[in-house]
Design a protein around this nucleic acid. Structure first.
Lengths: 327, 327
DNA sequence: TTGTAAGCGTTATCAC
DNA sequence: GTGATAACGCTTACAA
């Protein structure tokens, strides 16, 4: 790889001059500028970002930490972040945390060691020391934090809507599947649903789950019907869980939505392709990712930020695992 | 952030000594070693990877380039790569190429500028200059390359199996959906299928498609039945496409698999959750990602590599979009 | 066993 | 307008 020195030699100028044309600051004569540009082209020179980063103590790198890219919800967030960053010449160092504090700490540490200028994280502990101690901007994505920049969907409201819709459509023995206790958004949507169910004095039961993985989802789906055989309406913790429930309902010969209605959460790709397609609460994941990236870039580039807690609203997507009803 | 100098001062030694204990080379007295370690702990020091990278001209970073993380097949590859890299203390700079040469070039360039020590890429042009000119190891993932390290599944064989299975199960008017022309693995599986269909002198028609995106998939699915209303067996270009076809078949009142059999490709999460669950050709994507990472690490760390073209075999997963048959 | 100093490829300060 | 040169934080000869 050619260095700035090679370019300088080739062009017969000093490295300082080359640096000037590279960064477009300081005076440099038109003639020397073109000589330098010519040499750059000839040598196919491209500046070493590592050296830049060392000197300036900041890179063009962003750390992105997501729980698990194999969970179909996260690729949308990731892609939103990536598109916005790519367009602004930032690059992503990416890691999966598996909601584990250990991995999270490790990644944050290496982010810092690599001079990232900002991080986007879906963590359950926005208040952890590892974030407080960071002297670069952090945006929490898909997670709420009142006092720090964050981008998230209104999960509580999503839970409320799900409950309202399923009650309105006539379910009388509702099961609310409660997602993993340590995953914040899962709890919020759960609480929202329960809130409405209580208000309306509806009969409901709760099934606790401990993971979002597919295999576990199938097990929990069986449990739903074995523990509550008469349930006729299920509010699932996310779309994977909901799909597993739909499948299990079919296996048991129940008709969906006639015998049992099911509402998911997230609106992942799968939901639409399922037969019957899944009624669910839509979160604008891709747009949330983009917005988090935009916010972070703003923070990095020192713009005055008016609003750094951005809440997206969610909406009910009526498909075919819920019954039709007059509106 | 504390620097090596701070540690040296604090411990009353030179930076060289600190560096020695850090890297465990050279002699250093037991007493000074513990003094240094103590200071490291007190100052919460962690070495600056950027400075290291500059001096050694190599980092602990790997470039990972995938077509589109929103396509459900790729997160599995990505996660396999990440897990293996994470365990070996490498970090990933990640980008989506959208199968676009421009984005690909941009990413490869910034990988180099950041001193990555290796790259894993799913490209359609393994022979492009941008790879040939790289003086770091590259592993092609999910793409074949005879003369360069690569990890891929036997797509042609997958196509063959799909054709055999659908014929064996009695489809008489088969439609083969041909994936985007510029996506290599899509063409291979297509060729495999056609090869068998020709051999067996089966009646078949081809539907060309130009993308793997969901919206397009739904359009193409409609086209399948509008152009070939009597088709009774469909070999789809991937699982997304297959799911769209299943859905469309239902919409038209066709029974699956009685009236029309459908075979997908990839075996993404979705396939199993679908109702009816999708018969498909399984590719061990996660394991392929891991293997690519292992291979790359081997190349980087200079092990003698016996075999650098690793082909994974695929298998037919019989679920419920194909009919049962004696075996 | 330890320290001094050069060098990695840049940018920015200060002379000229 | 342009060129020396120090500095960024680290590793590694080489000296001591």
């Amino acid at each position: 790889m050619a260095t700035i020195k090679d370019v300088a030699n080739q062009a017969g100028v000093s490295v300082a001059t080359v640096s000037r044309v590279l960064n477009g600051n300081g005076y440099v004569h038109e003639d020397t500028r073109s000589k330098v540009e010519q040499s750059i082209r000839e040598l196919n020179y491209t500046p070493n970002e590592v050296a830049r980063s060392l000197y300036k103590r900041k890179s063009k790198l962003i750390g992105l930490l997501l729980p698990d890219i194999m969970n179909p919800y996260f690729p949308q967030l990731a892609r939103g972040v990536e598109d916005e960053m790519q367009e602004n010449d930032y690059r992503l160092i990416f890691g999966n945390s598996d909601e584990s504090k250990k991995k999270e700490t490790e990644y944050i540490q290496t982010f810092v060691q690599n001079n990232v200028v900002g991080v986007i994280s879906s963590t359950n502990n926005p208040d952890a020391d590892m974030y407080a101690g960071l002297n670069i901007p952090v945006v929490f994505l898909d997670r709420t934090s009142s006092d720090r920049p964050s981008v998230y969907a209104d999960g509580r409201q999503g839970g409320r809507i799900a409950a309202e819709e399923i009650v309105r459509r006539g379910s009388k023995a509702i099961t609310v599947i409660q997602g993993p206790a340590d995953v914040r958004p899962a709890q919020e949507r759960f609480e929202g649903a329960v809130e409405v169910l209580e208000q309306q004095a509806a009969a409901y039961q709760v099934l606790k789950t401990t993971s979002f993985s597919l295999t576990d989802a199938e097990e929990f789906a069986q449990k739903v019907f074995s523990e509550y055989p008469d349930t006729d309406g299920i509010i699932a913790s996310n779309d994977i869980m909901a799909s597993a429930v739909v499948k299990e309902a079919f296996r048991l010969g129940k008709r969906v939505p006639e015998d049992v209605q099911i509402i998911g959460f997230d609106d992942i790709l799968l939901s639409r392709l399922l037969a019957p397609p899944l009624s669910t609460i839509h979160q604008p994941a891709y747009e949330m990712g983009r917005e988090a990236a935009r916010l972070l870039i703003g923070l990095i580039e020192g713009q005055r930020i008016e609003k750094s807690n951005i809440e997206f609203s969610v909406e009910f997507i009526e498909r075919q695992t819920t019954r039709k009803v007059e509106s």
